[in-house]
């Protein structure tokens, strides 16, 4: 039982940054905006959270600032892609490059510094029950991710706001004629999504591996993008997806200790190949339509008379 608990715990720990990022991307994509820059957002969140925590000694403040930085970047992204109708693929790539560069620049003096990491807190009763305790012996940011997941799930699935958000992503023209402000929804979704992605980065630098290293997200932003596709834009499935990928990376080293005789480099390809497999399996155009992918994803909305 011990090992199962430990593996599950590792799975959640490794899956949390992915969960944050995937939720952020999901919210953004729901509104019809494709944000490929997740990696850049995560890195900026990681570095700003770390710097502030290092200076002030308060991880809480680091988290707030990381979210704020993500929010700012999301706003900028929305401004460029929603207002100016910039190509979302290229803008996303530019945000990856810019985020990588700027985080490296800002974090230069903070490599090798230490912080007091976000503490692990065991929930009194739940933390004692076998299996379930894996979910409740985690750091504060993990608990916060549960909360945010619930919030996103509720808002997207159960409220009028969520419905309108989907409408904007589905068919902006009819949403617009129904009196829903397409621009405002997209603006807000991008900005909040950005904040979520940055929190994912902050989890890595403040709790998972409490230090700052250039490029420390190591491609997790791209995996988050895949998780959203894998989840068919559904928060609950995104949760599973994030933990599934977390589980794969946690399992990788546990399998290695068993000496199964496969080159670790080949094993290292696994997450990427699985990702491609998942994409083939799920994201055919038909499946997308069937399962409610935002139809206008990646297409800038221009009002009649403007185009």
């Amino acid at each position: 039982m011990e090992t199962v608990d430990a593996l599950l715990q590792a799975t959640i720990r490794a899956g949390t940054p992915l969960l944050y990022a995937a939720l952020g991307e999901l919210v953004t994509e729901k509104s019809g905006v494709l944000n490929l820059g997740v990696e850049g957002f995560m890195l900026m969140g990681a570095v700003s959270g770390f710097i502030v925590t290092n200076i002030t000694g308060s991880a809480f403040m680091g988290i707030c600032v990381a979210a704020f930085v993500g929010f700012t970047m999301g706003t900028l992204y929305a401004f460029l892609t929603v207002e100016f109708a910039l190509n979302q693929v290229v803008t996303g790539l530019a945000f990856v490059l810019g985020g990588t560069g700027l985080s490296g620049f800002l974090g230069k003096g903070y490599i090798g510094k230490t912080i007091s990491q976000v503490p692990v807190w065991t929930v009194p009763v739940l933390g004692k029950i076998p299996v379930i305790r894996a979910f409740f012996t985690q750091d504060w940011l993990v608990y916060f991710s549960y909360l945010l997941f619930l919030l996103v799930w509720l808002v997207v699935k159960k409220t009028r706001i969520g419905m309108e958000l989907s409408a904007v992503g589905e068919n902006p023209r009819s949403a617009d004629s129904a009196g829903i402000s397409v621009y405002r929804y997209r603006f807000l979704a991008s900005a909040l999504g950005g904040a979520l992605m940055a929190l994912g980065g902050a989890h890595i630098s403040l709790a998972y591996a409490p230090m700052w290293v250039e490029n420390m997200t190591a491609g997790r932003g791209w995996i988050a993008l895949v998780i959203v596709i894998f989840a068919f834009w559904d928060p609950l499935r995104a949760l599973f997806g994030a933990y599934l990928f977390g589980g794969v990376s946690a399992l990788q080293y546990r399998v290695q200790t068993l000496n199964i005789g496969v080159s670790p480099y080949i094993l290292g390809m696994l997450p990427y190949l699985v990702t491609i497999g998942v994409m083939i399996f799920f994201s055919s155009e038909r499946a997308r339509r069937l399962l409610g992918a935002p139809s206008s994803l990646g297409k800038p909305y221009l009002r009649e008379g403007e185009k």
Binding site: T91, G98, T100, G104, F105, K108
Partner: peptide, 19 residues
């Protein structure tokens, strides 16, 4: 001068170009 800046410059070129 930090070497990571060249990525930032690449990003800025891209955004400003399409903008």
């Amino acid at each position: 001068f930090p070497v990571s800046v060249s990525y930032l410059v690449q990003g800025i070129i891209l955004v400003s170009l399409i903008l």
